[in-house]
Amino acid sequence: MTPKSFVSTLAATELPSVFNPWRDRCTVHDRSDAAARRRDNLEMLLTAALDHRVETIWIARDLGYRGGRRTGVPLTDEIHLGHAGTLMGGIAFERATQGPAVAERTAAIVWRVLERIGQPVMLWNVFPFHPHEADDPMSNRCHTRSEREATWPILQALVSMIRPRQIVAIGRDAHLALDGLDIPTTAVRHPSYGGQREFIEGMFSLYGVADDNDEPLELPLGAPHAAARRCALA
């Protein structure tokens, strides 16, 4: 599978109470061509990952409404699109939304660590879309087992395309859900809900980066990202 065919497969998927950023358009925040911009962003990310022969995929649980739902780049909010483009070799990612750029707590911490590590990685989620409550499209919820099973071939296709040597599961839920993959998986604490320091220390340890133990990261205001909430996914 090529980056283009992979993105096309993603864009063809439709599930209830799920926002597919590479297919759907938010009538409140998105530009008219938002889904196409996000498809372009992801295709460029995948192409760069193959060009750089990345050896690791970092996988969290679901897309959040403040991050990948808006950008089309997993674990990346609009504040860090430029950082992502630089790390992946100078990609010019485009914003798909209108108004001020929106920050996400998890993305802020992930990109703090990636900038220190200085190595390109592929970022993904067990469930590649944004699951939300039926009456609240801007909420986060845990994906269900049936939703994960419906999209599992997408994850398998990504792994087959990237061929990583290692997968890093971000959070307990992601680690449990990835049990079926035939690739070594290392778990680190999710950075939300008090896990920031453990996440940073775990990643620095994996990559042999000295922890400078500097001042705590200034996080965007608002409710914590709901991706750390534990769910019955097994």
Rank of each mutant, 00 (worst) to 15 (best):
T71Q: 07
A157M: 14
M122R: 02
L233W: 05
T86F: 07
I117V: 13
A12D: 11
V7Y: 04
D179T: 11
L114G: 00
I162S: 06
W152N: 06
D33H: 06
S17T: 09
M122N: 00
W111A: 03
M122K: 01
I162D: 05
I167H: 04
G90T: 06
A92C: 10
L114M: 07
I183G: 08
A174N: 01
I57D: 04
N20D: 05
H80R: 13
L217V: 13
A92Y: 13
I170G: 01
M88A: 02
I170R: 01
I59N: 00
L181R: 04
V113H: 03
D135T: 10
A101H: 03
P120S: 02
Y65M: 12
C26D: 13
P100R: 01
I109Y: 05
I183L: 14
F93T: 02
A12N: 12
A227I: 11
E14L: 08
L155D: 01
L46C: 05
L46H: 02
M138S: 13
R70K: 08
M122L: 10
L42C: 05
P153F: 02
Q196S: 14
T27Q: 13
L10Y: 03
A187P: 13
I59Q: 01
R66G: 09
V188M: 06
L15T: 04
A84H: 02
A177E: 02
L42Q: 04
W22F: 11
Q166A: 10
G72T: 07
E43T: 05
G64N: 14
A174W: 00
D40N: 12
H190E: 05
T186L: 11
M88R: 00
P191I: 09
A226N: 11
I109A: 06
L81G: 04
R141F: 03
N213P: 14
S192D: 13
A210H: 15
R70A: 05
G64T: 15
T9G: 09
R23L: 02
M1Y: 11
A108T: 11
V54R: 02
R66Q: 12
S32A: 12
Y65S: 11
R116A: 09
T13L: 12
L178N: 00
G222E: 08
A187K: 11
Q156K: 15
P16F: 01
L50F: 03
M203L: 13
P74R: 02
G118T: 00
L45Y: 09
S8M: 10
A187S: 12
T186I: 14
Q196A: 15
G89S: 05
M161W: 05
L206S: 07
G72W: 03
V113E: 05
S32C: 09
L15R: 05
S32R: 12
